[in-house]
Design a protein around this nucleic acid. Structure first.
Length: 560
RNA sequence: GCGCCCGUAGCUCAGCUGGAUAGAGCGGCGGCCUUCUAAGCCGCGGGUCAUAGGUUCGAAUCCUAUCGGGCGCACCA
């Protein structure tokens, strides 16, 4: 990266001027007239040195070794910005390095040596996954991917809440449905699961083990239904997620926390640290010591644990399993739970171990009206309903294209639009077009080789702007990973695709054959094919990073 | 009542640790098809950045207050 070298040089100059280390930030000006990169360091330094910003800027510029940094021009502008423009050769060599890196372009090792667990979805195994889970699934998976691209060692994990009262209710509800099937007048329990899916599952139960269940005593039958229901629903979730292209390294059951006595270990450790106490017949944790609003109950008056307790033990296990950082992706309705969980981990001596990404709610709109996500004939209820209608690529992209912390509207009409109005297709189309040009040129991608092309021939402003845009990709990945913000990659891909489509159309042979990739001029054609390949590499890497496909060609529906 | 998120163009949203005339997509309006696939492209219009103060050379961005929307405030999970 040429800007890296420049940054180091400026840092050296500036720390000499100031007499101390001064961090330098190079930014990309919005306005291209302000150069390729710019810095405000002279303004930052002006106050400290007691000199006018422009004078400080002069001093910095005087000391610069332009050729060493690959600079074509440097100017001081406005209140004291320094604007830099790189030599064209710098961008030409960047295009060459994009093509050479190919699938590795955009990857870095900045996170090397860091083991991170991303835990997401973690839906209760009491029913099918809903639309809201889909957003968490897409975002969690993309964050994990971003961390992998930046060199972290990443594990994706799903925590199965297969213990606790919600599972008792599942077992009861399933039993009621099974008995109703046999004509008994059974009523769903308070807080039972009313979904129709349990009626279907009851039919499966009957087919699989009806006679056996009738012969069992009630306790054994309940236990059997409980195990069967959890297993069945869990595997249905796993299958839905697999089709949605989200694959977990581990499905970690809550019952394992109990089976391995982790709760006792955790309570003992908290007790030894003097952070628990008994009051009103319950055992409490002093979470207020670590920033929570009130202390929390660990063991209820009846001797059972709150939901919190096994969850603390589970997060303690994450650290014990060797992870340096745990990132949890939670729904907005759990945000109030964040301070207490962080407090509990701080109590265990793990103050910075947990990072929580809160994913806000999704509203689905069709025809300008909100789709009620309750069960109603023909309306979308589950994640599977949604992606079966839109396709997996579209559903994933729509979930990812907005920042997680903002509520989002899922516009089904736009999602179902197969034109380039749909941002997913816009990006995929741009990719397919590059592939189409390569096919038309009759070359394999590897034959578009920067070593046998003169990239100096790419002098058109559109081409140069495009090369600069492609070169930004690694920085975008880096920032998106740091910010746990996959939507930044979407923004970048859409902007890139827009430029690609303009370039492609400008070179439409019927309009301006001089700009066409497949031009008569053999040398120019070779150079443009390298750019074509570079574009396809960046778009493909970006799409695949987000878990989307990069199609070789787009299906064309015959227009009427 | 307290806490968290949000309030930017008609709609949906970007705006990176404050930076140079506030951006994109959709919708609207006007052009452009014997195509490296027009499922498109080019251009135009459109904003008191919720409001009021404050900090700063500089605020959509930071601070305070107010208003509006969402969510959460259990010995539920």
């Amino acid at each position: 990266m040429p800007s890296e070298r420049l940054k180091e040089q400026i840092e050296a100059i500036v720390s000499e001027l100031a007499g101390t280390e001064v961090p330098v930030r190079l930014e990309r000006p919005r306005n291209p007239e302000h150069g390729d990169v710019a810095t405000n360091v002279a303004m930052v330094l002006a106050g400290r040195l007691g000199r006018p910003p422009r004078e400080v800027a002069e001093a910095i510029v005087e000391r610069l070794d332009r050729s060493q940094a690959g600079l074509a021009s440097v100017e001081i502008a406005g209140p004291g910005f320094i604007n830099f423009r790189f030599a064209e050769s710098v961008f030409q060599s960047q295009l060459a390095s994009i093509v050479e890196a190919d699938r590795a372009f955009g990857r870095s090792s900045s996170g090397a040596g860091r083991r991170v667990m991303v835990e997401f979805v973690s839906a209760n195994p009491t029913g099918p996954l809903h639309v809201a889970h889909g957003r968490g699934a897409a975002i969690g998976d993309a964050i994990a991917s971003l961390l992998e691209w930046t060199g972290h060692e990443v594990a994706r994990e799903f925590y199965i809440n297969d213990a606790g009262v919600q599972i008792d209710r599942l077992a009861e509800s399933l039993e009621v449905r099974w008995r109703q099937r046999q004509g008994e007048a059974a009523e769903l329990p308070e807080g039972g699961y009313m979904g129709e899916y349990l009626v279907d599952l009851a039919a499966e139960v009957e087919a699989e083990a009806g006679d056996k269940l009738r012969a069992m005593d009630p306790g054994a039958r309940r236990q059997w239904l409980r195990d069967w229901g959890v297993r069945r629903l869990r595997s249905e979730q796993e299958e839905d997620l697999r089709v949605f292209r989200v694959v977990f390294d581990e499905w970690y059951p809550e019952t394992r926390i109990y089976a391995e006595n982790r709760i006792q270990d955790t309570l003992r450790e908290l007790g030894e640290r003097g952070l628990t106490y008994e009051a009103d017949g319950a055992l409490w944790l002093r979470t207020t010591t670590f920033g929570d609003d009130k202390d929390r109950v660990l063991v209820k008056g009846d001797g059972t644990y709150t939901y919190f307790t096994p969850d603390i033990a589970y997060h303690r296990e994450k650290a014990r399993r060797g992870f340096d950082l745990a990132i949890d992706v939670w729904g907005a309705d759990h945000h109030g739970y964040v301070p207490r969980m962080k407090a509990a981990l701080a109590a265990l001596g793990l103050p910075d171990f947990l990072e929580v990404v809160i994913v806000q709610i999704v509203r689905v709109m069709r025809g300008g009206k909100e789709v009620r996500l309750s069960k109603r004939a023909g309306e979308i209820v589950t994640l599977r309903d949604l992606f079966e209608e839109t396709g997996v690529d579209v559903a994933r992209y729509f979930f990812l294209m907005r920042s997680a912390e903002a509520q989002m509207v899922f516009d089904l009409d736009l999602a179902l639009d197969h034109s380039e109005k749909n941002p997913v297709y816009k990006v995929q189309y741009a990719h397919a077009r590059m592939k189409s040009i390569l096919r038309k040129a009759g070359v394999e991608p590897e034959e578009a080789d920067p070593r046998t092309a003169d990239l100096g021939l790419l002098t058109d402003p559109m081409e140069q702007a495009l090369i600069k845009q492609l070169a930004l990709f690694p920085e975008v990945v880096e920032r998106a990973a740091d910010a746990r913000a996959p939507h930044m990659v979407c923004e970048y891909l859409e902007a890139t695709a827009g430029m690609v489509n303009s370039w492609y159309h400008a070179g439409n042979p019927s309009r301006n054959p001089a700009l066409a990739v497949l031009t008569e001029d053999e040398a120019l054609r070779r150079a443009r094919l390298v750019l074509t390949r570079g574009v396809s590499i960046v778009l493909r890497n970006g799409l695949e990073l987000l878990g989307l496909t990069a199609p070789e060609r787009m299906e064309r529906e015959d227009a009427e």
